[in-house]
């Protein structure tokens, strides 16, 4: 299969097109995803053009977008709906948490909800408190829901195809600062398995566990650390639920030191879960305390001076690693 260079948004669009061609039950709907092409431009990469009857604009009705996807999925379709900003996902939390995630279980396995909710998370655009949050941990606390969070165009495409084919509800989290990121993506059909981490960089001294935009910050930090002779391993989880515990533990067996990095607020963040796994199941592997580098426990501020302070960057990761290595 030949590779093409495309950006993350195009890669998401490519997955949508392929799955819509393959499966007539896949429909896309959300706000301005039709002719306008989506506010982040995803469906504008030919998805609406090719499937004008299956890419539908909705009113500003987040509750209905997610809620009807549950019913449509239960009735045999495979909706892949869009919630523009992740900050608006809490509007549809009953639908996602109490309905989609519980259908299979509470009806004793009789029914299923094969649906995907795509949404954009993250700060960095000066978009302030209502358009910048990273709320992935909230989703990871809901059994029955899978949470997928790709960092590259390759993973975005392969994981979205897997997510659409998955028979469970999947929250598919796209970082808005990654949409223009370019990468090599195979033409045509391929999947990236849900629940498999990706070792982005091998190292021996410390493991940086991360996901989404922080993968790129960790790779920058690893470059910086290399100059000091510190070899950092970078592990991109790619999927939070299910989590690839083995990949974390295998890496710790090599490096014996763990730094967890996420953009979301520290307290109650997914880093705590990773730390608990490492401490509980990898206790003997660890030579040092576990360190978390995360956003502060504040809303995302508007002022560029404050937003820059909010965001985790490579220097902060480097400082944390140096602190750990002494």
């Amino acid at each position: 299969m030949a590779n093409i260079t495309m950006n993350y948004a195009e890669a998401v669009a490519d997955a949508l097109k392929l799955e819509m061609r393959r499966d007539p039950d896949v429909y896309v709907y959300g706000e301005d995803v039709g002719k306008f092409g989506g506010s982040f431009g995803v469906t504008g990469y030919g998805v609406f053009e090719e499937f004008p009857d299956r890419v539908l604009d909705t009113p500003i009705s987040e509750t209905a977008i997610v809620g009807t996807a549950v019913g449509a999925a239960a009735a045999g379709m495979r909706p892949c709906v869009e919630i523009l900003f992740m900050d608006f996902l809490p509007i549809a939390m009953d639908e996602l948490c109490n309905q989609a995630a519980k259908f299979h279980y509470m009806f004793g396995g009789q029914m299923k909800c094969p649906m995907v909710v795509r949404t954009a998370l993250g700060a960095g655009m000066g978009a302030a408190a209502h358009h910048s949050q990273s709320l992935e941990a909230m989703l990871c606390h809901i059994p029955g829901l899978k949470t997928v969070i790709p960092a590259t165009p390759y993973d975005a495409k392969g994981l979205l195809i897997s997510s659409i084919r998955d028979d469970n509800p999947v929250a598919f989290l796209e970082h808005k600062m990654l949409y223009s990121l370019k990468g090599e993506v195979p033409e045509g059909d391929y999947t990236v398995p849900i629940g498999k981490a990706d070792l982005k960089r091998e190292g021996t001294d410390v493991t940086l566990v991360c996901y989404s935009s922080m993968v790129h910050r960790c790779l920058e930090a690893a470059d910086g650390l290399e100059k000091d002779g510190v070899h950092a391993e970078v592990l991109d989880l790619r999927t939070l639920i299910p989590m690839d515990k083995d990949a974390i533990l295998n890496s710790l067996a090599k490096t014996h030191r763990l730094v967890i990095v996420h953009e979301a607020c520290l307290t109650g963040g997914f880093g705590g879960e990773i730390a608990a796994i490492a401490a509980g199941e990898g206790f003997d592997l660890l030579d040092a305390p576990i360190v978390r580098v995360a956003g502060p426990d504040t809303p995302v501020p508007f002022s560029p001076a404050l937003e820059a302070e909010f965001l985790v960057n490579a220097p902060r990761i480097i400082a944390a690693v140096r602190g750990l290595l002494g």
């Binding site: 500003i60 302030a128 408190a129 809303p299 508007f302 002022s303 001076a305």
Partner: peptide, 26 residues
């Protein structure tokens, strides 16, 4: 008014009983 924390989408002057601009439609 919001010490720069809000910006255009959250601009508010509570002394005038303005309960805020809001980023979430509705």
């Amino acid at each position: 008014f919001c010490r720069g924390k809000g910006g255009s989408m959250h601009i508010a002057d509570s002394s005038l009983n303005i309960l805020g601009a809001n980023g979430v439609v509705g």
